[in-house]
Design a protein around this nucleic acid. Structure first.
Length: 633
RNA sequence: GCCACCAUGGCUCAGCUGGUAGAGCAGCGCAUUCGUAAUGCGCGGGUCAAGGGUUCGAGUCCCUUUGGUGGCUCCA
């Protein structure tokens, strides 16, 4: 007998050699039915794994991440099996579970068509119906290689496994795949699934390799869960900033400027208030503001290292006989400003902000609404400082970013990126900079993900990622520590010893790109922005024409207080005007008729809560102003 | 840039196996003066993304280009 400690701390005795599924059944039939995998001492295992020694055991269902991944992984194998049955010549690459389902990469002579997808789905249904048992086995390397000799990608994978690693396979019916597992005990366990999309993907994610065909899918234990998931995706699409931006007349992108967005009057209101907020908050924190040119000579970009490391993304032009490049970053301009004068250590840190418009030639396939564009405004700042000021300055920026995101109610996650292949500077400087950043993060008790080799070419960085409506994350804020540019541009300051010293610089953005931030903002609020940012904060709706004079009076009173207000005095029914204002997502509608005109009242309707009844105009003004001033969400 | 898919009036979309463009919303006009999510009637609007080809005939088939969508790569 062995002793099993369950998740709730209970201990049970079972016969050695019982499988996880057996143990689950011993606990309850219901649990056994929904069990998809087991976590033994923290490692996710197949349900059919025999347990032979004392351990902690957690029975996983689809509701846990480990359970879901097991479920999806098996779904992915079922898909691969279906593809193999229908197209025996297709070679298999890899097929993991991901956050929202699974995919499998195939190397196929002929690209898959939507009709093929249907055929694959049908075959998958058949495999599920066959309810094939899944078995796991391991092989020594030479036998493993022999088994997969017709699958070149699998051969490559096996050859790259470390010497001592166990090479495991999973077999269901006639289909066997190299796989670490775990898996469901049989194909019949997969209930509702759907193949979602077809995409190209490079083998091992490198554009130097062959492009494979990737099929994405998802699966759920119940049809209703799948339907719910698909419904959620539909709902999320309604919040797409590209759709809302056009509908609400905020911004748009035309064919005439791929990747170059236009901001419309209402979008500009939003944008200007964001920038005002930004300026005020930066001023409070000792930042100065500058504006540097969009184009500078190529010489400068050679010196900064941008030309060598970033030229694929840069636009350049010839003016007279000189060559210029359009700035893809603001730093060289900022550096020239710093260099204008000799600096004392007493003047440091120097924090210099710039809302700088940069242009980057992004690959056409990468463009995505306002999220990924070819020109955008960075809410940039460069901080020049002494080495012993690094930590405080980095922490200051972390706090600033945190406060900004809180203002909008955004949740975010943090990543630390280290030295990339293409980069400048010595290992020592990189080491020092990277350590400084991770220390600042630890000091603030911030959890972060390490992103090896993903830093800027001049230094490591801390990135802040925000989510869009369908859960994709986008980098917004970033803090980059740079000891290289000061070297290249021979920046210096005079220390207390009267000697020249090399300053360190931080490149940082809070919004990241104003455009991208506005896109996230649009999706986050589904276009219903907080009052302080709403392009129109209140809309006055008259019942009939004779109320227009009072309406104009109300409008003037609101405008005097700086409230952005519109008047709808059209000869339309009130229901119609309300409907329009609601669709425009105006926070407050003021309905004005006889009663209001006589009493000097306004009948307030909020887009969130509906009819709020009549109140004196002054009371409404007070209410909306307090919401605006507190930046209420 | 690569892979797949898509492109019809301002917007959302019909248009079967090729036979000379259709709806709703929006817009405009007229009537209606009406209290919390669509008043009625009428009118105008499309070289079917662009270019080329097949055909007696192409929105529908083929090729090229442009733009978009979802991925891959890359990135704020």
């Amino acid at each position: 007998m062995i002793q099993i400690t369950l998740k709730d701390g209970n201990r049970i005795q079972v016969e050695s050699g019982k499988t996880i599924l057996d143990i689950a059944r011993g606990i309850s039939e219901g649990l056994a039915r929904v069990a998809v995998a087991g976590e033994v001492n923290g490692v996710v295992k197949d349900l059919f794994t025999p347990v032979t020694e004392d351990c902690n055991l957690n029975i996983l269902t689809f509701d846990s991440e480990g359970g879901r991944h097991t479920y999806w992984h098996t779904a992915s194998h079922i898909m691969a099996q279906a593809v193999k049955r229908l197209y025996p010549g297709v070679k298999l690459a890899i097929g993991p579970a991901i956050d929202s389902g699974f995919y499998y990469d195939f190397d196929s002579e002929k690209p898959f068509t939507p009709e093929d997808m249907q055929a694959i789905e049908e075959e998958m249904r058949r495999i599920i119906k066959e309810d094939l048992g899944v078995e796991r086995f391991t092989l020594p390397r030479d036998e493993a290689l022999e088994l997969v000799k017709d699958e070149p990608y699998k051969v490559e994978l096996i050859n790259e496994l470390p010497e001592d690693s166990e090479i495991s396979f999973y077999k269901q019916g006639e289909f066997t795949d190299l796989c670490a597992g775990p898996h469901l005990p049989s194909t019949g366990k997969v209930k509702a699934f759907k193949l979602m999309q077809l995409a190209g993907a490079y083998w091992r994610g490198s554009e130097k390799n062959k492009m494979l065909q990737r099929i994405y899918g998802t699966a759920f234990p119940k049809k209703s869960h799948l339907d719910e998931y698909l419904h959620r995706l539909e709902e999320a699409k309604k919040r797409d900033h590209r759709k809302l931006g056009r509908e609400l007349d905020l911004y748009d992108i035309y064919e005439e400027g791929p990747g170059f967005p236009f901001f419309l009057p209402k979008g500009m209101v939003l944008r200007n208030f964001l920038e005002d907020y930004w300026r005020r908050e930066h001023e409070k924190r000792g930042y100065q503001e500058i504006k540097t040119p969009i184009m500078l000579t190529k010489e400068l970009w050679y010196r900064s290292g941008h030309w060598d490391n970033y030229k694929d993304n840069m636009y350049s032009v010839e003016i007279d006989d000189a060559e210029f490049a359009v700035k893809p970053m603001n730093c060289p301009g900022g550096i020239l400003v710093f260099k204008r004068k000799l600096h004392s250590y007493r003047d440091l840190p120097q924090r210099m902000g710039e809302l700088g418009l940069v242009h980057r030639h992004e690959l056409s396939g990468a463009l995505h609404g306002l999220m990924r564009v070819r020109c955008f405004t960075q809410d940039d700042a460069h901080i020049f400082m002494t080495p012993d000021q690094i930590k405080d300055e980095v922490i200051g920026v972390i706090k600033l970013i945190d406060e900004f995101y809180k203002t909008f109610g955004f949740k975010h996650h943090v990543e630390l990126s280290t030295r990339p292949e293409k980069s400048i500077g010595s290992d020592e400087l990189w080491e020092k900079s990277t350590t400084a950043l991770s220390e600042a993060l630890q000091d603030q008790g911030i959890e972060y993900k390490l992103n090896e080799g993903d830093g800027a070419f001049y230094g490591p960085k801390i990135d802040f990622h925000l989510e869009d409506s369908i859960g994709r994350t986008w980098q917004c804020g970033t803090i980059q520590l740079d000891m290289n540019m000061p070297e290249r541009f021979d920046l210096n300051y005079i220390g207390p010893d009267g000697e020249k010293h090399r300053p360190v610089m931080i490149h940082r953005v809070v919004f990241g790109s104003i455009e991208r931030f506005i896109a996230i903002l649009t999706e986050h609020f589904a276009g219903a922005f907080p009052v302080w940012l709403s392009p129109v904060q209140a809309k006055i709706l008259t019942i009939v024409e004779k109320h227009i004079p009072y309406a104009e009076e109300v409008k003037r009173r609101l405008e005097e207080k700086g409230i952005r207000v519109e008047l709808d005095g059209r000869n339309e029914k009130i229901g119609f005007k309300i409907r329009e204002a609601q669709l425009e997502k105006v926070p407050y509608m003021l309905v004005l008729g006889d009663k209001e005109a006589e009493a000097g009242h306004v009948a307030v309707r909020s887009r969130k809560e509906g009819d709020m009844g009549s109140m004196p105009l002054d009371e409404f003004i007070e209410k909306i102003l307090s919401e605006i001033n507190s930046k209420a969400l």
